[in-house]
Design a protein around this nucleic acid. Structure first.
Lengths: 131, 131
DNA sequence: ACAATGCTTCTACATCTGTAGTATCATGCC
DNA sequence: GGCATGATACTACAGATGTAGAAGCATTGT
């Protein structure tokens, strides 16, 4: 499984679909109308291409085609991260996380949250509560 | 400054240049020879395009053109991360870091290191030793 | 000064991405 | 059953990316 590569515009479309779950091209157009100035056919073309790519599934429902994700947002995110780690960080997640934390990109709240996460993870590991 | 967007192949080239600092097209070709099967002119073309993009600087040194980075690896990495956060995580670094930490992508050592980082950062903040 | 060797420059071309027009098809209302 | 409305399918086209050939220019040893 080649792990669907999404382009910028495709992320925009997929995000709209993930937020609505079943969505028609018109739904997506409406959803992104103030983010982009796309024509209806632009959205439609992208969605059909996404079906080809295996990122969306299409099913005709009388009037129009209804699309829904063929991959979860999680999966897509994860594979985008993996791919970034690959090309930009030589495959290592560590330095990537490092940069993420060290920079001023996080809010104090997020930082707290992450620390908690690390702590939890640490505990989970030492008590061996797998899964 | 539009923040240089690097494609996959371009990352490969840039990584080789960053590792060598001044590098000719041949240097890069040699460096990536077992990763790719590129022809010399392929590398050369990419490097010249990277100059146009503002990612490399070129200077002719008698025989051949010597290239060096016009942006630091840090900057490139950072902007790639920003761009990923943008499209895939709605602009928030938090969830991105979250996913990075929660997944099994990190080694125990890295996890320790990150916790230390967060702690340090925390301390730095409360003692107000800003930059 | 000349030839060999290796660079450079130009050009090319297939694919992917972003964007959309046009013409055709289906549906639902009178 | 015919027509308006909106959706679909097909085609297009420019710019970016991946990949490279061909031909010409510079260096350097002799």
């Amino acid at each position: 499984m080649p792990a669907v590569r999404l382009s910028d515009a495709e992320w925009t479309v997929m995000n709209a679909v993930w937020d609505r779950e079943p969505a028609t091209a018109r739904d997506v157009l409406d959803a992104v109308v103030d983010e982009t100035a796309w024509a209806y056919t632009t959205v439609k073309t992208m969605m059909d291409r996404l079906v080809d790519k295996g990122a969306l599934k299409a099913r005709r429902s009388s009037a129009a085609v209804v699309y829904r994700p063929a991959v979860t947002r999680e999966k897509a995110r994860r594979s985008a991260m993996r791919s970034l780690a690959e090309r930009a960080f030589g495959g290592a997640f560590g330095p990537m996380a490092h940069m993420l934390l060290e920079g001023r990109g996080l809010t104090a709240k997020e930082r707290r949250e992450l620390k908690r996460l690390l702590q939890e993870d640490h505990d989970r590991r030492r008590t061996g509560s797998g899964q």
